[in-house]
């Protein structure tokens, strides 16, 4: 009978033999590279996710019809649901108002009888021109760029905004003279 040879616990000595300083550093760099690659790829995918292939939203600039389609003194609410603008014609011309309340961004309603836009969230009221006169809204509604296309139709460009308090309603594009 021979005695079983119990191998001495030699893990420590072996691992120190296998992994010297140089090897440790190269493994470490490899590990970090892999980690950076994985996180980088992940964040690239995340950022890519922010830019969808197809946008299901109406175009920012669109035709709304001919000037004669709009009655003088009326607020046209046809474009509110899809494009979030009111088109108003007065004696001198046509302007497009943004339907975003300047207080906290709810959508006010045009009340024909009272001749005002009234916000259901905190009660801000705006006159037909878009000037604020009641409730907490600090500034008037914003206007969008409006101009005639070559075919005689009106184009509203929502990428441009004109703020009354900055005197931008004087700019030609904010108001279509007819």
């Amino acid at each position: 009978m021979s005695e079983k040879v119990i191998p001495k616990a030699s893990i420590n000595s072996e691992s120190t033999k296998d992994l010297n300083r140089k090897g440790f550093i190269s493994w470490l760099s490899l590990g970090w590279l892999a980690f950076a690659g994985a996180t980088g790829g992940f964040f690239t995918l995340m950022i890519r996710f922010m830019f969808p292939n197809v946008l299901f939203e109406p175009p920012q600039s669109f035709k709304i019809g001919f000037p004669d389609d709009f009655t003088i003194g009326k607020v046209d609410i046809r474009f509110k649901r899809k494009h979030a603008v009111w088109v108003v014609r007065n004696d001198e011309g046509i302007y497009a108002l943004s339907t975003v309340c300047t207080h906290l961004g709810c959508t006010p309603n045009w009340l024909e009888v009272e001749q005002k836009y009234k916000c259901p969230c905190h009660g801000s009221g705006f006159r037909k021109t878009g000037i604020n006169f009641e409730g907490p809204a600090p500034r008037p509604l914003e206007r969008h760029a409006i101009f005639l296309a070559s075919d005689g139709q009106i184009i509203v460009d929502k990428t441009k905004r004109f703020k009354w308090e900055k005197g931008e309603w004087e700019i030609e594009e904010s108001f279509l003279k007819i």
């Binding site: 509110k80 899809k82 979030a84 207080h103 906290l104 959508t107 309603n109 259901p120 969230c121 907490p136």
Partner: peptide, 28 residues
């Protein structure tokens, strides 16, 4: 929800109604 049509009246969750009332008197 539809951003183009806000319910009338549009009320915050009940625990925020005090906050909504404050918003009537102060800037956001």
């Amino acid at each position: 929800a539809n951003p183009a049509s806000t319910p009338n009246p549009s009320k915050a969750p009940w625990y925020f109604l005090g906050l909504q009332e404050m918003l009537v008197y102060f800037d956001p």
